[in-house]
């Protein structure tokens, strides 16, 4: 295993630790800050990979990651949060804190097992379990929380996990990567608009919508 693989492992474990922190954190602002830090970490990893391998394309991706996921998206979410002050703390997560932590740890193990049983024989690198575990964690964040902010962060964690796959597999063509970033920004902007709309009509947690049942 070379130094870059070790760096990837380190960043990967830190990413997983940060998502587990998000699972039990109830203050939305801290979750947004943690997401920002996790995105910067991925940007730094790609920056190092780009420098060492002399790949300008990866350097551009690192810059894009820092700019969009590290700075802009957290900045935008914090701006909305400042307007909707009552959303600062999630009072009614669908899964309790202790159960969330336990399930998160289990998900990490499941991610590793899933990778070992399916892909590890066909992919030379054995690092693939990290993005898979991270992606499952993001999914769990969406399922376990009722706050729109946390669910959106869950989606963004899944997106970051996708980005980490880029280390193991060849980078997608630039037009696709650029399109993914544009879509990501589009989803975040639309989500921001919906969060603002929800402010007017939903005051707390998940309502019991009869029209959305069955």
């Amino acid at each position: 295993m070379n130094h870059l693989d070790n760096a990837f492992l380190l960043v990967g474990f830190l990413e997983i630790a940060m998502v587990i922190f998000m699972q039990w954190e109830v203050y939305i602002i801290n979750i947004i800050k943690t997401f920002s830090i996790s995105s910067y970490l991925i940007a730094i990893l790609f920056l190092v990979v780009g420098f060492i391998n002399h790949e300008n394309f990866i350097l551009i991706l690192a810059a894009l990651t820092a700019l969009t996921r590290g700075w802009f998206i957290p900045f935008y979410l914090r701006k909305i949060l400042r307007i909707d002050k009552w959303r600062a703390r999630e009072t009614s997560p669908l899964v309790g804190i202790s159960s969330s932590i336990l399930i998160s740890l289990l998900i990490t193990v499941v991610g590793y097992l899933l990778y070992s049983l399916t892909l590890s024989n066909y992919i030379k690198s054995n690092l693939g379990s990290i993005p898979i575990a991270l992606m499952l964690q993001g999914m769990f964040l969406i399922i376990s929380r009722s706050s729109t902010f946390t669910q959106l962060i869950g989606y963004l964690v899944m997106e970051n996990a996708m980005y980490m796959f880029g280390y193991i597999f060849p980078e997608l063509p630039f037009i696709v990567e650029a399109g993914i970033v544009l879509d990501l920004l589009g989803v975040v902007m639309i989500s921001g608009a919906i969060i603002r709309l929800r402010e007017d009509v939903v005051q707390s947690g998940t309502e019991d919508y009869k029209e959305l049942k069955g």
């Binding site: 989500s191 919906i194 929800r198 309502e207 959305l212």
Partner: peptide, 15 residues
């Protein structure tokens, strides 16, 4: 309910 349905659409489909 409409806004809730919109949010579910965005988050489930994007994920």
């Amino acid at each position: 309910a409409t806004i809730e349905a919109t949010w579910r659409y965005v988050i489930i489909v994007s994920a």
